[in-house]
Design a protein around this nucleic acid. Structure first.
Lengths: 205, 205
DNA sequence: AAACTATCTGTACGAATGTCCAGTAATCTA
DNA sequence: TAGATTACTGGACATTCGTACAGATAGTTT
């Protein structure tokens, strides 16, 4: 059994510890402060350990991006589940998400953004990006029923978060809620079909 | 006269050449590829020349951010002038701006975004950020007449642009226009007062 | 127990980096 | 013309970086 090999499970644990440490390093000092040595020190492992688990520094960063995206999708799935149980509007989901990203989860959000920007120049990373993005859009589409509107809502909310990060602004919960409600109210009214039909996702931009 | 000193004007010219080269370097390889040597090579000057004009690398980056912000504000002022002559709606201005930023000006826009992100960890740069941001919001406010709506519109349009950059997506002009028109139509309807009253800018978030 | 394998580490090396400094050349001032 | 000022340059130095590699350690298999 591979899964119960004591060496492998410990190896996987330290691998994850390195990734978590990378997030902390990015959040603290930016992408440029990520080196094998800084991450190893933060994770409490030897320098060579990082090169063992991740052959090159780019591999380490890509794995960090994947890890962050995975947790993001997990939180997304949780939100979906809550919505399925009813009594949970799009505004609720988006508001709580924004409050989290700009509050307790802000450090990880910033690290995520820096990695996403780095992916602009690394085509190999693009698959991770589009997957998580499609996940978010599909959730919103589940509420709104229109792909175009879903994309617009996501862009706007994303811009709200990015903008407040860049401006080092910490909006209140009420500010977040007001922004989301204004935004959603518009597209909610404009939605052509509220029922969840089998969507034919267009591949055009 | 200081202004007509031949040495100084040439010095200022090469200083600007270095800043322009820095933008090109960032656009080509990202912030991490900015070194005294790469910028000097791109600008066609000696390595020591960059350290002469900018004592430290951080100074060079900050000056680059200021330079990019200045040109952005200049284009903003131009748009305002066009609007004053009438027959130029907010949707027109925002659409052309987005098309430019995501098209011919995309490289500089990406460089600008990377620098803006870098400012998150550099408090000394924040003044540049808030100044340009306030400029944009004031322009939108000129059309919409409501500060809150202006902020929301800016956030949404900004998110649209950032998102397409991260996704390496090149939206068509029609896509940009449709997004802007949907966005503006909402807040345009909701505007409480179209006339340009003397605004009392609130300092709250 | 013995052979094997996966994880981990100390150490090292060439390359690249930020920054300094002693000069040189061009221009201005008096 | 003589001196002062400004822009610019080649070269150097200490530091940090990515990465490789031989060996040590510990868990698994036979």
């Amino acid at each position: 059994m591979i899964a119960t090999d004591g060496r492998r499970v410990r190896g996987e644990a330290s691998r994850q510890a390195i990734l978590d440490a990378a997030v902390r390093v990015i959040a603290a000092g930016g992408l440029s402060s990520v080196t094998h040595r800084t991450v190893a020190a933060e994770a409490g492992v030897s320098t060579a350990s990082t090169t063992y688990h991740f052959a090159t520094l780019d591999d380490l960063l890509q794995a960090t991006l994947s890890s962050l995206s995975a947790t993001g999708v997990a939180r997304l799935a949780q939100a979906v589940e809550l919505s399925e149980s009813g009594a949970f509007t799009l505004a609720d989901a988006a508001t709580t998400f924004l409050i989290e990203e700009l509050g307790p989860n802000r450090d990880a959000f910033i690290a995520n953004l820096e990695l996403q920007f780095a992916s602009v120049r690394r085509p190999a990373w693009s698959t991770v990006m589009t997957n998580t993005y499609d996940g978010f859009v599909e959730l919103i589409e589940h509420y709104v029923g229109d792909e175009h509107a879903a994309r617009a809502i996501f862009s706007a909310a994303f811009g709200f978060a990015v903008h407040h990060v860049i401006q080092d602004s910490h909006p209140t919960d009420a500010t977040c809620r007001r922004f989301v409600e204004d935004l959603v109210a518009h597209y909610d009214v404009a939605k052509p079909n509220r029922s969840r039909s089998r969507r034919t996702r267009s591949s055009k931009r």
